[in-house]
Design a binder for these strands. Sequence first.
DNA 1: CGTCCACTTGAACGATCACTCAAGTTGGCC
DNA 2: GGCCAACTTGAGTGATCGTTCAAGTGGACG
Lengths: 213, 213
Amino acid sequence: MTATDTRTRLVLTAMQLFRDKGYNSTSVADVLHSAGLNSGSLYHFFPGKQDLLLAVLDAYHGGIGPLLLEPAWQGVSDPIERVFALLAAYRRALATSECGYACPIGSLALELHEPDRAVRERLAANFTAWIQAVQDCLEDAGARLPRDINRRELAAFVLTTMEGAVMQARTYRELASFDAAVRQLRDYFQRLQRAAAPRRGRVRKSSSRRKRS
Amino acid sequence: MTATDTRTRLVLTAMQLFRDKGYNSTSVADVLHSAGLNSGSLYHFFPGKQDLLLAVLDAYHGGIGPLLLEPAWQGVSDPIERVFALLAAYRRALATSECGYACPIGSLALELHEPDRAVRERLAANFTAWIQAVQDCLEDAGARLPRDINRRELAAFVLTTMEGAVMQARTYRELASFDAAVRQLRDYFQRLQRAAAPRRGRVRKSSSRRKRS
DNA sequence: CGTCCACTTGAACGATCACTCAAGTTGGCC
DNA sequence: GGCCAACTTGAGTGATCGTTCAAGTGGACG
């Protein structure tokens, strides 16, 4: 077992525990016990608990593509459907956890009330990468959305919706809350697409002919 | 100084500290020190820290009308404008705190990962009361919104937007994030109103002629 | 085989946590 | 004045917090 393995194990364990119990409610002893390590190992790789958090946030940032977007977009090529496929991935996380799931980044963003610059920058970087991925979809959608709609703001609004929807679903322990929010966002998108469509043209709901895999 | 005063002082102090630092990061000693009391006084009125939290959540619930809605709706009688006046109140809270503000209920909802039934019920009750207030506005708006739009789901979507927007503004420490989300919601509402308007009628942007105060 | 150093061990530290309780103090009521 | 119940005092409880560190361990390299 190399040093990298131990470090990685610490980060993965902390990722899980911070997600499940929150940062403050997860003790260093929790992480060490779950990882089957001693405190010295942790402090060999990290100056302190907060630096472990930084590594966790970096891991989330690096995992957005391979661990979040790619699975969510399996078999979905239509850019607008990709936006909702991403939301569907969060719905799955909620369903799997009996609505106990919370977006780890959003949770940390609200839990840490006076975060260091380094922490806040990484939280923001995670949001920014998420928003950018959605923005890319919206730009791929081209003229299917009104020209005067700001793609970045709309992408950020998708994140807004996801975070607010997860929060409510978690609080009510009901998937219905999440679904209701997505339904509203879908309605908004349909109205945007209708407004962008040529006067007499029908709104096409999906153009999933492009690519199979 | 009566017993009620001490109890009230504890609740108000805890309200402030839980909002500013979070529940887990606020120690009982913090509350006692800020309130200028000894630990015995707290445990005379509350069995434990969590029961203080319950009292805080009840206080928020009771304060939604007089402390949140009424100030936000001062001089605003148009029901749809009231929805956005409520959002403007949160914007003010963000502006005042250099974007350090977070909705106390939303923060607690995400911070407490395995809350007791009693806590979760009160969190949900706060959300429900907030949603109900917005729903009342939307119903007051009558035919200005499409008939087939579910008022409750749209009201919940306003909460979704507020919570997600506050979270992002806090994370980026930029009011612009909040404004962008509200702008999207406003755009959605305008499209809804346009869809509800009779074919040839113009969309009126504000009908603030009704009441001056 | 000897040296070195990255890595691990795990007991121990002081601080702080939520909470307890016996001993007060106070104010209203007879 | 005497009494009781409501409330306050604040030192003290054991548990747990994040962190430290001296003493190892073991593999790589000469």
